[in-house]
Amino acid sequence: MQPAKDTLAWMYEKMVTSRRFENAIEKIYMEGKSPVFNMADGPIPGEMHLSDGQEPVAVGVCAHLNPEDVVTATHRPHHQAIAKGVDLKKMAAEIFGKATGLSGGRGGHMHIFDADVNFACSGIIAQGMGPAAGAALSRQIQGKPGVAVSFIGEGAANQGAFHEAMNLAAVWKLPMIVVVEDNAWGISVSKEASTAIQRNSDRAAAYGIPGHYIPGNDPLKIYEVAGEAIERARRGDGPTLIEIETYRLAGHFMGDAEGYRPEGEKDGLFAKDPIPAMRAKLLADGQFTEGELDALENKAQAAVDDAISFARASADPKPEDALTAVFA
C-alpha cells in the first residue's frame, strides 16, 4: 500500500505543522521561566511533553482515519491531535488556558478533547485503552462505521489497563488498533530495564491477534502497516497491535535534564530526524520539487502562526467559570 501524492503531501505537511507548532510552544513555554525555571510561571504553565521526532507515527496512522474514527491519545498528544485534525487554533488556546480553548481552559495540554473529530487524550498511563475498546464496542453494537485507535507509549504496555483492554478487544473482535510509540524511554527508565520482552508487538500472540513491529520511524512503512490493520478492523476482522520504533528528540517534559540518556544518544537521534529524512526521500524519489515542499512548509508555518496568534490574543477564562460544567 503506497500513499498517493496528495496523501504524501498531507503527511509531510502535518509532520511539519506538528514540529513547527511544538517549536513555537517550546519557545513560548520558556517565557517567564528564566533565570529561574518554575513550572508555574509564564504564558504556558504546568508540564509540557513535546512529541518532536514522533510525528511519523501520527501521520502514518491518521492518514487512514476519518473524523468519525475515534482516537485516544496520551500525555504527549500534540502530533496525534494535529494528524487527527483537531482544530489547531482552539488547541493552541487550550494549551495557553484561554477561554477560547477547546475546553475553555479547563483541560490544558494533557487534556485535549475535540468532539468534532472524536479525539481525546489524558494524563494517566494506558488510560485511553479502555475508552478506545468502548468506542469500538459501541460502533460494533450500533452498526455504525468507524474504528478506534489507542495511541500509547511503550511504557504503557506494562500497565494493567493495556492487557485488560487488549484481551477485551480480541475476545469481542472489536474494530480497534493499538499503536505503541516505542521511543525507548518512560521518563528516565529505559524499555530494556522495564519490559520483559524486546517487542511489545510480540504480546499480540497472547491475545491471538496480529502484531507488527515497525523499525526505523519510517512514515511510509507505518502508513502501509497501519493501513492494513485499519482495513482489517473495518472489515470486522478484529484488532491489531502495532509497535513503532520512534524517537523522542526532546526531554520527557520541558525542564528534564536528561542525565539518564547514554552519552551521544541525542546526537544520534537528531541525525535521524524524520522530517528532513522525509523531505530528502520525497525529493530523491522525484515525487516532489523543492518548490512544492517549500510551499507545504509555508502552509504549515502559516497555520501555526495563526493558531499561536489566536491563542495569545484570546482572553483568559473568568476565574469563577472553574465552578461550572462539572455536570452535563
Binding site: G105, D321, A322, V326
Partner: peptide, 9 residues
C-alpha cells in the same frame, strides 16, 4: 470541582 488547568481558574 475537578482541578482546572487555567491559572486564573
Amino acid at each position: 470541582v475537578p482541578i482546572p488547568f487555567a491559572r486564573v481558574m
